[in-house]
Structure formats: structure tokens, C-alpha cells
């Protein structure tokens, strides 16, 4: 490969982590961090399509959305919110540990993040399974007879309720997919942190991984109230 040949030649003049086409480590760091921010902007637009659909259907089918929202397990949702915020804290501390060159602390914090991330996914799986048991998964066996019985005063239309659950699965599913990617990313980072790749001079990957993790976290911070907390006050 032509580039790597040149890069190995010139690596004597700068560290191995500086790619040849950059002038300085600072330029490289500024460049990749701008790239990450732009990527997150595209992610906002990606989720934005679903948020837009949510906004419209919630306005049209408010009663069904409220009933659907009530059927979600608010305690599991809250636990997951706390778990994710906690994982963002461990990530932030991890960036700090990398900057200060504390290798072992960094590895521990990254592992903690992974554990919290997997906990979130586990809880999410339990919630989805509950929905499966309740026949709330859109498709042939979809039924909201239980909600119709429970909230007769809301006059629930089954098709409109299905929209709520479609969006619920699309949005939480897409979020969970991002979590899975994040877990993969952090496995990679943990391995390299273990090997001692990162330190005060070179911690950009930890920073970028952290940005991604925080972003996925923020998406959940929006999803939680939008899906779980639509209307929880006692019905008359």
C-alpha cells in the first residue's frame, strides 16, 4: 500500500499515531473531532425522521398514544434512564483518566461503561418480551383489547394504537442498534486501552467514542419522556 510505505518511512519524524497527510497532531485532532461532530449531526437527522412521524401521529392520535404510553413499564424505563446516565458519567471519567495517563483506571471505567450498556440492553429485551406477551407487537397477532378494556373512556382505535407501538419499536429498536454498535466500539477501545495505546499525548479515540456514547445517551433522554411519560395522570 503506497500510503503506509511512505508513512512508515516518515514515522521517525513524528509519532505512529500521526497520519502522514496531517501537519501536526493538533490538526489531526481538530480534524477528526470535527468529523465526529458532523457525523452526529447526520445522526440527528436520521432520528429526526422518526421524531417527525412521532410528532404528527401523537398530535392526531393522542388518546391512543396516551394509552400505549401507559402500557409501558415506567419503572424499567426509569431504571434504564439512570443506567444510561451512569454510563455517560463513566465515559466522561474515562476520557479524564486517559488524559492523565491512568491506564488501569481507564480500563476499569471502560469496562463499567460496557456493563452498564449491556444492562440497558438486557432491560430493554425484558420490556420487549413483555410487549410480545401482551400482543403489543405490530403484525398479525397485534391486539390492544387489554387497553380498550382498561381505558374505555379513551375510545381507542386499534389501528391508531398500532401506530404508537410501531413507532415505539422503530425508535427504541434503532436506539438499541446504536447501543449495540457502541458496545462493539467500546470493546475495541477497552482492548487498546488495556494495551496502553492511549495516554496524555493520544486519547482522541476515547474522546470520539465518548462523543458517540453521549449522543446515544441523549437520544434516550428524549425517547424516555416521549414514549413513557405522555399522559400518566389518573383518568377520571
Amino acid at each position: 500500500m503506497s500510503n503506509s510505505a511512505v508513512q512508515t518511512e516518515s514515522h521517525e519524524s513524528h509519532g505512529p499515531e500521526l497520519l502522514h497527510h496531517f501537519v501536526s497532531a493538533e490538526q489531526q485532532r481538530n480534524t477528526v473531532s470535527l468529523a465526529m461532530w458532523l457525523f452526529l449531526a447526520t445522526e440527528v437527522m436520521f432520528f429526526g425522521g422518526m421524531f417527525c412521524a412521532y410528532l404528527i401521529y401523537r398530535t392526531w392520535y393522542y388518546a391512543e398514544f396516551a394509552a400505549g404510553s401507559r402500557s409501558l413499564n415506567i419503572w424499567l424505563g426509569t431504571v434504564n434512564t439512570v443506567v444510561l446516565i451512569g454510563s455517560s458519567l463513566t465515559v466522561a471519567l474515562g476520557v479524564r483518566a486517559a488524559q492523565m495517563g491512568k491506564r488501569k483506571l481507564l480500563v476499569v471505567l471502560l469496562l463499567l461503561t460496557l456493563v452498564l450498556g449491556l444492562t440497558f440492553l438486557g432491560v430493554k429485551a425484558i420490556e420487549w418480551h413483555d410487549k410480545y406477551v401482551e400482543h403489543h407487537i405490530p403484525g398479525a397477532s397485534f391486539s390492544v383489547a387489554d387497553l380498550v378494556r382498561e381505558y374505555p373512556q379513551l375510545h381507542i382505535d386499534q389501528r391508531h394504537a398500532q401506530i404508537f407501538f410501531s413507532l415505539y419499536f422503530a425508535m427504541t429498536g434503532m436506539h438499541a442498534l446504536h447501543m449495540v454498535i457502541g458496545v462493539g466500539l467500546f470493546l475495541y477501545l477497552t482492548y487498546h486501552a488495556w494495551k496502553g495505546t492511549y495516554g496524555p499525548k493520544y486519547y482522541t479515540p476515547i474522546e470520539l467514542g465518548g462523543l458517540y456514547w453521549h449522543f446515544v445517551d441523549i437520544i434516550w433522554i428524549y425517547l424516555f419522556p416521549l414514549l413513557y411519560l405522555i399522559d400518566r395522570k389518573p383518568l377520571k
Binding site: M45, G49, I163, F169
Partner: peptide, 19 residues
Amino acid sequence: PVIAITLVLVVLERTLHLG
């Protein structure tokens, strides 16, 4: 990204009947 998610939703509606 907007057409990406739109096509994902089309695929989900077609395969999993997410309405």
C-alpha cells in the same frame, strides 16, 4: 440521513408490518 430512515421505515412496514 432522512431518506435513509424513510427507506428503513418502508422496509420495516413491508416486512414486519410496522404501520
